[in-house]
Design a binder for these strands. Structure first.
Lengths: 202, 202
DNA sequence: GTCTATATCGGGATAGAC
DNA sequence: GTCTATCCCGATATAGAC
């Protein structure tokens, strides 16, 4: 039992890459085989069907997104620092895997029930209540302007994720290349943090 | 030449519905024919191929999104009122066609070059400069906190669009049904407007 | 213009040799 | 475990009668 580059691993990695980019219906088994540098039949030998293979990739992806959400809303930092670190971690994480959000959102929209269940039953489902509680306390004390915590949480996530979803469009509109886009997202960490904290001033 | 419900029209409407929901690779010509209440062969009679049909739907969709962006950033209102009306119009517009953003973002990511060109060469490309200029003036006068106009514009759009992209997920996480979601988006119009204006206080 | 029947093709899946 | 060849089905596309 070798630790790296076993055939199963190669297949999963290839499948992840192709499925992420093309989606379930857009991906072809041949593409995955080519990407993995093996034969098409091997895919069926190790994983019985396209659906099975896809299921594994999707589960991994959902898990990964949940971990990120967790990172955003858990921990016991003070609010400003928590928001700063949340935005930072989130944008950094997605930068390493920029197709992940679109992939997950897509498949959720294709099959809401199946995936919603998977999210809710996940062991690492994020601790939303804790963050909301922390916000409410700040509002009671008067250090924060009163806003709906749910609206706020969704706004923070929106501002972090959306630019990745619309990346090619933004690049076209503002004529920026790939390195410049990364720079833009680095600046965005600061912008979003400042933006949110300023919006929450009483 | 009748004004409504010509066969071409029925086909386009059906194609729009199916393509929006399933994407290019996920949609089947049979589904479109069923939806239009006609025979599969008719699709090829009026529009030569699946690709041709898809192209028409996509072009329409891109156009529609550009119009919305235009609505957000054009006009000659004062800034607070402009932002309020922009958010309102945008959320209302997408509510009527909630699959549009995911559809467009998807196909942009599948084929960045083709679609980016289409965006940029569109006659109704939004007047971004005007809005940015308006912001800069406010910042000079000291009525607005200084921020990067591009980051701001993307943030406003993010907060309006993202909830629609993640709708099934949000519904699962917060256990809200369809009517409640609409209510949530109504409240969001006010929230986003207030949020942005407060963030821009000097 | 509208239908039925059919050709054609791509891609998922399996058989079987090695 | 790995390969080649092949099966088989679903989906696009076309032919041709009416």
């Amino acid at each position: 039992m070798q630790t790296t580059n076993t055939t199963e691993q190669q297949i999963i990695e290839a499948a992840r890459k192709i499925f992420m980019h093309r989606g379930l219906t857009g991906a072809r088994m041949q593409d995955i085989a080519d990407e993995a540098g093996i034969n098409k039949a091997m895919l069926h030998y190790y994983y019985r069907s396209k659906d099975k293979l896809f299921d594994i990739v999707l589960t991994e992806a959902v898990d990964q997104m949940l971990s990120r959400l967790n990172a955003v809303f858990s921990g016991d930092l003070e609010l400003p620092e928590k928001i700063r670190s949340a935005v930072d971690n989130y944008i950094t994480g997605i930068s390493e895997n920029p197709f992940l959000p679109l992939f997950v959102l897509n498949e959720i929209n294709q099959n809401p029930h199946r995936i919603a269940e998977r999210f809710l039953s996940a062991p690492n489902f994020p601790n939303i209540r804790g963050f909301a509680q922390q916000l409410l306390e700040g509002m009671e004390k008067g250090t924060l302007r009163k806003v709906d915590p749910v609206q706020l949480m969704i706004s923070i996530i929106s501002m972090c994720i959306f630019p990745f979803l619309a990346k090619p469009l933004l690049q076209a509109v503002f004529t920026i290349d790939d390195p410049a886009f990364l720079g833009f997202m680095e600046e965005r960490k600061v912008f979003v943090t400042e933006f949110v904290l300023n919006a929450l001033r009483p």
